[in-house]
């Protein structure tokens, strides 16, 4: 018996959300008196034994050139084989882009109930009940998993990774692999930016900023504190900012430690994508803007006057 954690990588490096999944899985293994093991698929330039720091005892590395590009179907089948080989009763994945591609297939393959978007550890006192976000962040559901094997898709940034001491044993796993039926053609990354889904701090602008030419202050503040940038749908629709920055009910859904919203009204559909953020700061000239109801800190004022002063204060702080 074990808890198996899928470690997702990008360009051979472990993603931050996978450390969260590893920590979560290790805690769950402790809670259920089993062992936490991990599976890594494809080439890795990371030192996999260091997953031991997060409580992983054993890492199954499935390395084969057919696995060097992500393919949902191929990865699902490989992880299914590892799950069976180590008799895992729980599989934990981050509910990130690749997790969302793999977990459902794994669920159908292993007839294992999936809770996608888990926000806390399971309650095992009566069944196996996992809390997940529903209604686009406006509520939570407690979901009981009825099947012998359980799959958990952990919401990124919902569980803080805890690093301690330890070294994991790394073993090669020989999987039977069919050639992927999806052929990878290209990877296009936006250069020099922090991906929104991975960001701990996010600075976001709305229609109150009047035009794309005024985004300098958003970018400057983001650059100073190492934040990613985001925007409202109205802004993306007006092509002031690229579509991948659009957050909300029909855009990206994020849960950073800081969501700093400038000139965004806080429409219910916008809030749905950001209301799981730990701290929300709102700058809006309208004291009645709905966003203030969801905010932790706020300034009622003109962004064009307030933001330069905020930037100066941050510069002072960073310089000191």
């Amino acid at each position: 018996m074990s808890v198996l954690i899928y470690i997702d990588q990008a360009e051979g490096q472990i993603k931050k959300s996978s450390f969260e999944a590893a920590s979560y899985g290790a805690r769950l293994a402790e809670q259920t008196s089993t062992q936490a093991e991990a599976v890594v698929v494809g080439n890795s330039s990371a030192d996999l034994s260091m997953l031991g720091k997060y409580g992983i005892k054993k890492v199954h590395h499935v390395n084969n050139e057919m696995l060097n590009h992500f393919d949902a179907q191929t990865y699902t089948r490989v992880i299914g084989q590892v799950t069976e080989a180590c008799q895992a009763t729980v599989v934990v994945l981050s509910n990130n882009v690749n997790g969302k591609a793999i977990a459902p297939g794994l669920s159908a393959r292993l007839k294992a109930g999936l809770v996608a978007g888990a926000v806390s550890l399971p309650d095992t006192s009566n069944g196996f009940v996992v809390k997940k976000g529903v209604f686009s962040g406006k509520a939570f559901a407690n979901v009981n998993v009825l099947s012998p094997i359980k799959i958990i898709g952990l919401t990124p940034n919902a569980f803080s990774p805890v690093a301690g001491e330890g070294t994991a044993e790394v073993v090669a796993f020989n999987a039977s692999i069919d050639a992927p039926r999806v052929k990878h053609l290209a990877t296009n990354k936006v250069q020099g930016q922090i991906p929104l889904s991975e960001a701990e701090l996010v600075i976001s602008g709305g229609r109150g900023l009047k035009g794309s030419e005024n985004w300098g202050m958003i970018e400057e503040l983001a650059g100073l504190i190492g934040a990613a940038t985001a925007c409202s749908r109205a802004v993306a629709d007006a092509h002031w900012r690229p579509h991948h920055e659009h957050v909300g009910q029909t855009g990206g859904s994020i849960a950073p430690n800081l969501y700093f919203a400038v000139g965004i009204s806080g429409a219910i559909q916008h809030l749905a994508g950001v209301n799981r953020s730990k701290v929300i700061v709102v700058i809006n000239k309208d004291p009645e803007a709905p966003f203030f109801k969801a905010a932790d800190y706020g300034i009622v004022g003109d962004a064009f006057e307030v933001m330069p002063k905020v930037i100066d204060a941050v510069k002072k702080l960073k310089g000191a």
């Binding site: 669920s107 007839k111 294992a112 109930g113 999936l114 809770v115 069944g127 009940v129 809390k131 529903v134 962040g137 406006k138 509520a139 939570f140 559901a141 407690n142 979901v143 009981n144 998993v145 009825l146 099947s147 209301n275 799981r276 700061v281 709102v282 203030f292 109801k293 969801a294 905010a295 932790d296 800190y297 706020g298 300034i299 009622v300 004022g301 003109d302 006057e305 307030v306 933001m307 002063k309 905020v310 100066d312 204060a313 941050v314 002072k316 702080l317």
Partner: peptide
């Protein structure tokens, strides 16, 4: 079915916004 929803909850209400004067953005920082 492999799963069953046993109940729903609403997120805890926010404590309320702490407003900072527009003249003192450094206080926000």
């Amino acid at each position: 079915p492999l799963t069953a929803i046993v109940g729903f909850e609403l997120p805890p209400a926010k404590a309320g916004v702490k407003l900072v004067s527009a003249d003192q953005p450094e206080e926000l920082v």
